[in-house]
Simulated scan of single mutants.
Amino acid sequence: MNKKAYEFDAIANGPFFPVYPVIAQQIKDKTKILSGRCLDIGSGGGHLGLSLAQITNLEVVLLDKLEDAIDIADRRVNSWGLSERASTLLGDAQQIPLQDNTVNLCISRGSVWFWEDQKKGFEEIYRVLANGGMAYIGGGFGNEELKKQVDKKMKGHSSEWPKSRNQPVEGNAIQHFIEVLYKAGIFNFEITDDERGIWVIFEKPEIQEEVKAC
């Protein structure tokens, strides 16, 4: 048993719980992708992906490299009544076990800080995205008020908070992501860093058919 998977899920299902519907709504508003296949990378117990499934018609795949996290997510898929539109997949961001051009929306909250090779992770996301598909990758709490609420609850939960929150994020500022994305061959992107958190957003362009001269 992976103890961390259960500890993280307890936090996600407790102090962090109000964050996920807010971020899901922000993703929906920004991308306007309401149907097709969504891949939630580093999903843990699936809170973000399932929150998005609740407000869209997306078919959501919850991807995590920990078997215990997948087991937790499987149970949550059923308990939330989303078994017809949500599934789980064991795998890693740096080697996504899906075919090219098969995902309409890639999302991830909080996992990018822990990818061993961020360049490879973004390359893999770009590979599996369908033409016109979008990615929304990063971390945050939705808004400043929710962040304050989580901080207050987590300080009572852990003496290491907020150090444990800030440590993985250090060095992952806008300039860092710009450099990583360029190295991954992704040049058309947006990076936000505000009260919602830091998020990397990009689209895989539609393929334009050549117009033949008559």
Rank of each mutant, 00 (worst) to 15 (best):
V128S: 08
H47T: 05
S164C: 12
I125C: 08
F187Q: 02
D40T: 07
G45P: 08
D100S: 14
I174L: 02
R37D: 05
F17P: 00
Q149F: 09
N2W: 07
A86K: 02
H47Q: 15
R196H: 10
S164A: 09
K32I: 07
G44N: 06
E206C: 06
K4F: 06
A135G: 10
I72G: 01
I27D: 05
S108D: 07
L48A: 04
L34G: 13
I27H: 07
V211D: 06
I11H: 04
I201P: 01
K119G: 00
L89E: 07
S51T: 11
R85H: 08
T102D: 14
G171H: 05
C214Q: 12
I107G: 06
Q95W: 02
S83E: 15
A10P: 00
W80N: 11
L82W: 01
W199T: 03
G42K: 01
V60G: 02
C38F: 11
V112A: 14
I27W: 14
A69K: 03
E144I: 13
S83A: 14
L98P: 10
S164T: 15
W115R: 06
M1T: 14
F16K: 01
F141W: 13
E84F: 07
F189L: 01
N13A: 14
R75Y: 01
I137Q: 10
Q175T: 11
E123A: 00
G185L: 10
S111E: 07
S35W: 08
D117M: 03
C214I: 14
G49S: 06
V128P: 05
A135C: 13
N57C: 01
I137W: 09
W199K: 09
G46I: 00
A184L: 00
G42S: 02
F8T: 12
L52N: 05
K119P: 01
G14N: 11
I178S: 07
I198H: 04
E144H: 12
D74C: 08
K204M: 03
L62M: 07
A184N: 03
E206S: 09
I55Y: 08
I27C: 06
H176M: 01
L181D: 02
V169T: 13
E179I: 00
R85S: 04
F187R: 03
G81F: 01
F122E: 04
V19T: 15
P97D: 05
K147Q: 14
V112P: 00
A86S: 14
